[in-house]
Design a protein around this nucleic acid. Structure first.
Lengths: 194, 194
DNA sequence: GTCTATACAGCGATAGAC
DNA sequence: GTCTATCGCTGTATAGAC
């Protein structure tokens, strides 16, 4: 079992790694325990020891993902750069996943959400909430100190930005064309420039 | 069998209707012939008469969808409104699907594309190409006659707009919050205003 | 064009040995 | 913690009667 507040280690971590990549590329309904087991050269039964059900696996993955993402955001906060640089670092987190060859984990799960177990739906919602709250704060701070300029509520901007990034990953991944992602980031940034 | 260039009628059309809604809400891997059969009160074997394989069904659906969408775009072209109104009518096509309770058919399939049969992948790509080409033309015409104003290449703008709309549908559908879609349309429109 | 019946592969999941 | 073996179910798909 996994100690509370700690990331799984050993085989459990490897399972999460493989499952994460499978979900990013094929979706939750697009991979099976057999796929993961074959890739790790273990048996399906061994996976069920670590994650009794597929939804347990999915929820553990979402928990790890949220923890890691929150840590990345905290790192950006601690870097002491201005608001625009923070926004760019934020888009960079998305871009890194795209360059690694996959769709955003939670973007993919959002598309499938009606087929997901309830616990996973909540995990996906929490991820987006985290994104929006962090970005809203950055936008508000940037507008307050004059380094950013935009119309309307910061929260609406943050939501539009996250939606734009998700759509950008979807399209750039589908066409295998990173410039489609860059174009969206570009127009996002232009809309915030002081 | 379906006559070339004509939409399927009768049971085949009903099958496509149900499959379309299932893909929009649950994805291609999220529904089965059994689901469709139950909803139409027929047997699975009956579905296989109309569409021998699931990929045949998917490809027929994409063909009908492309035909209908092209007809909607032609209708906008023929309406004689200015470029901004055409863009709004375009976003309205997406919004109508969202209000009907689903994700964009091809947006959903784009997320799953690595698990799709090759013929369906091509169909999805053609849909996005059609979107981009039409919107690029509208943006160029609008800039030429002064009713729109924006920086950069029209094609890049069109691609960003389509990506934004896809992401907006994804997020608005997930949170069941139409205002998230409207916010994205709003910022899209603002970025084009002369 | 729809039905019953069935084939066969893959799925998530469990029991129990090591 | 991993294995072999197996279960029950669902998936796509087919044969052949009506």
């Amino acid at each position: 079992m996994v100690a509370a507040g700690r990331e799984p280690a050993g085989t459990a971590a490897l399972v999460l790694d493989v499952a994460e990549r499978h979900i990013q590329t094929r979706g939750y309904n697009g991979f099976s325990y057999a796929d993961v087991a074959a890739e790790l050269s273990v048996t399906k039964a061994s996976l069920h020891y670590h994650f009794p059900s597929k939804s347990d696996l999915g929820e553990a993955l979402l928990e790890r993902h949220a923890t890691r993402f929150a840590a990345s955001l905290a790192e950006i906060d601690d870097s002491g750069v201005d608001a625009m640089e923070k926004v760019l670092a934020f888009t960079g987190l998305y871009g890194a996943v795209l360059r690694s060859g996959g769709m955003c984990l939670c973007g993919m799960l959002a598309a499938e959400f009606r087929t997901l177990p309830g616990g996973m739906q909540d995990g996906v919602a929490r991820f987006f909430d985290l994104n929006e709250e962090w970005l809203t704060r950055v936008l508000e701070a940037g507008r307050a100190d004059g380094t950013l300029d935009f119309e309307g509520r910061a929260r609406d901007r943050a939501r539009s930005a996250v939606a734009g990034l998700e759509g950008a990953m979807l399209m750039a991944g589908f066409f295998d064309d990173l410039s489609r992602f860059d174009s969206v980031v570009e127009s996002l940034v232009e809309g915030l420039r002081a």
